[in-house]
């Protein structure tokens, strides 16, 4: 509890860079993540936002929820816009004509904008080594357009484009794309998964991401009560259960070395997580068992990577 209190007192000193009056659904997990992240990032930053929930809820002309400079261009080009900003700031600072000193460039995009339509731009920016932080707010579907599946939608979830029917009884038939591993494959200095349900861990990772020189990728698991079919008070609980069941392990990869940050002694039964969401309610015991086994395998692989890094 003391670390939480410490975090709270530090947060209280900073203003809300993502101001109230935003139009997110009640109980949105994504904005908890944004609030927490920008409390740590602070005011000397420039935000590049992809089209999506986080953009639309904060930017209805003539208003903005942002208390820091913010730019939204398109859906798939966030990392490219960030690349240009970083390059522009760098050369202008070198030439002594920059407007801002040492501003951090932070890209914010949803799971579709990251792992589907914006993957190429992100890969390019990571490969080129721009000094910026990319935060993927993963709510596991295209929520802003009405809950369509993305490559980040988990196996077994129904969405409006992975529906369950007479012939197809599973929903999403593919396993969630392992986006953090794709980021790791670019040999960037810092990759981490985070979840606002673990605020101290999240903020510590944001701090590292900001401090590191070069690209940093944070994959943030943010529950969406609207899209997942659960009451509006569930976002924090769902995040916690996702971590405890192995659905979304919290880990970081520093210069290739893995550390699992939250290690449950034993993974909780995944049914505890699945049963409280309408998107999984059609799943039978067999599918749930399959999911649990696969999660256990993936988690084991992660632990092995972490152990290998430590030795």
């Amino acid at each position: 509890m003391s670390s939480v209190k410490k975090l709270a007192s530090k947060m209280l000193e900073e203003k809300e860079f993502f101001a109230p009056g935003h139009r997110a659904c009640g109980g949105c997990g994504e904005v908890i993540g944004l609030r927490l992240a920008f409390k740590e990032i602070g005011g000397n930053a420039i935000v590049v936002n992809a089209t999506g929930c986080s953009e639309i809820i904060a930017s209805q002309y003539p208003y903005t929820s942002w208390n820091i400079p913010w730019i939204h261009a398109l859906f798939e080009n966030t990392a490219a816009v960030a690349s240009g900003i970083e390059a522009g700031l760098k050369i202008m600072e070198k030439k002594g004509i920059s407007h801002s000193k040492g501003a951090k460039v932070v890209a914010v995009a949803g799971d579709g904008a990251t792992s589907d339509i914006g993957l190429q731009a992100l890969s390019g920016a990571l490969e080129r080594g721009h000094d910026f932080v990319y935060i993927c707010l993963d709510n596991e579907a295209y929520m802003n357009t009405g809950i369509q599946r993305s490559s980040a939608t988990p196996y077994g979830a129904t969405t409006t484009t992975s529906p369950v029917g007479g012939k197809q009884k599973i929903g999403q038939v593919t396993w969630k794309k392992d986006m953090p591993s794709i980021a790791v494959a670019h040999n960037i200095p810092y990759v981490a998964t985070a979840c606002p349900s673990y605020p101290v861990d999240l903020v510590a990772k944001i701090k590292k991401a900001i401090e590191v020189k070069g690209p940093a990728y944070i994959h943030m698991f943010t529950a969406c009560p609207t899209g997942w079919g659960c009451p509006s008070n569930m976002a924090v609980k769902l995040g916690r259960l996702a971590v405890q069941t192995g659905v979304f392990p919290l880990y970081e990869v520093e210069n290739g070395a893995y550390t699992v940050n939250v290690k449950p002694a034993k993974l909780k039964p995944v049914a505890e997580y699945l049963k409280i969401q309408k998107r999984f309610r059609h799943l039978g015991d067999e599918e749930i068992k399959y999911i649990e086994q696969r999660l256990a395998e993936e988690y084991q692989k992660l632990l092995e990577k972490s152990e290998a890094s430590a030795s």
């Binding site: 730019i71 240009g84 190429q120 490969e127």
Partner: peptide, 28 residues
Amino acid sequence: LDAEYIPIESEHSAMSACLGSSAVGART
């Protein structure tokens, strides 16, 4: 030429990077 040359991965991203650099006031 004292400039940042971004060898970018597509034209879509080229123009997107131009948006970014121009938006911070860099001649692009």
